[in-house]
């Protein structure tokens, strides 16, 4: 059993903070994969996209249990990320006149706060585009259920060029964020062993492949509307 002192140390310690970042990050990575699977149906099977989206929008377990967990995961990840960044900046005090960070660490690993904040800003737009729209449709305007509306609504979002560009750029930044963060989360949780090269390879494929898939979907819907 954890006693109070140990529990307090577990929450306050630098190692615990790393693990909280890792676990919340892995949860969001898993969610991203599930989100991609649903979105890709908007390209290959619009009816499936409608029915899956309707299920996600009206299933009480998804709406009242999984959705709050997801929002909590996002909040924990970015709040902890910003707290860590501020603590880490404070740990140096006087800055170096010359600091050659590129000599010993990748740009990706040194700039997680930049890629992370861009993704966070994108999430703001994404929430405005879809989540707030959905909440308004269902709970404020109290519109009736319409299982056929999702495909048209989603495709319509990608009509403006500017929004498509923002989506593409944001997913490039997300890929850069994941390229360091996904593999790094295993190290934070103490997993560094003979399987590490395989984990790194898988995380690279996932970190590039999934955002690339989202970019394809956004471009597909944008250019598909231009040609029709």
């Amino acid at each position: 059993m954890l006693n109070k002192q140990l529990m307090s140390g577990l929450i306050k310690s630098s190692i615990a903070r790393k693990v909280i970042m890792a676990l919340s990050g892995l949860f969001l990575v898993f969610f991203l994969g599930q989100h991609f699977v649903i979105n890709v149906t908007s390209v290959i099977a619009p009816d499936t996209f409608n029915s899956w989206s309707h299920f996600m929008g009206y299933n009480p377990i998804v709406q009242y249990i999984l959705q709050p967990i997801l929002i909590a995961g996002v909040i924990v990840h970015f709040v902890m990320g910003i707290v860590l960044e501020l603590q880490n900046r404070g740990a140096r005090g006087v800055k170096y006149a010359k600091y050659k960070g590129s000599a010993n660490a990748s740009w990706l690993s040194r700039n997680m706060i930049i890629t992370g904040l861009v993704v966070l800003a994108f999430l703001g737009l994404h929430f405005y585009d879809f989540w707030i729209h959905e909440m308004t449709y269902k709970y404020i305007e109290s519109n009736p259920e319409d299982p056929t509306r999702y495909y048209a609504e989603t495709v319509h979002k990608f009509e403006p060029f500017w929004r498509t560009v923002i989506y593409v750029v944001s997913f490039v930044l997300l890929a850069l964020h994941l390229l360091h963060g996904f593999a790094s989360s295993f190290q934070s949780m103490g997993l560094n062993n003979k399987y590490t090269p395989a984990i790194k390879m898988f995380t690279k494929i996932y970190a590039i492949g999934i955002p690339l898939g989202f970019i394809f979907i956004a471009l597909y819907h944008h250019f598909n509307q231009l040609t029709h």
Partner: peptide, 12 residues
């Protein structure tokens, strides 16, 4: 001291 963010600079 600051928190580790797995940049790997220390190892290098």
């Amino acid at each position: 001291f600051g928190n580790c963010t797995n940049t790997g600079a220390c190892e290098v």
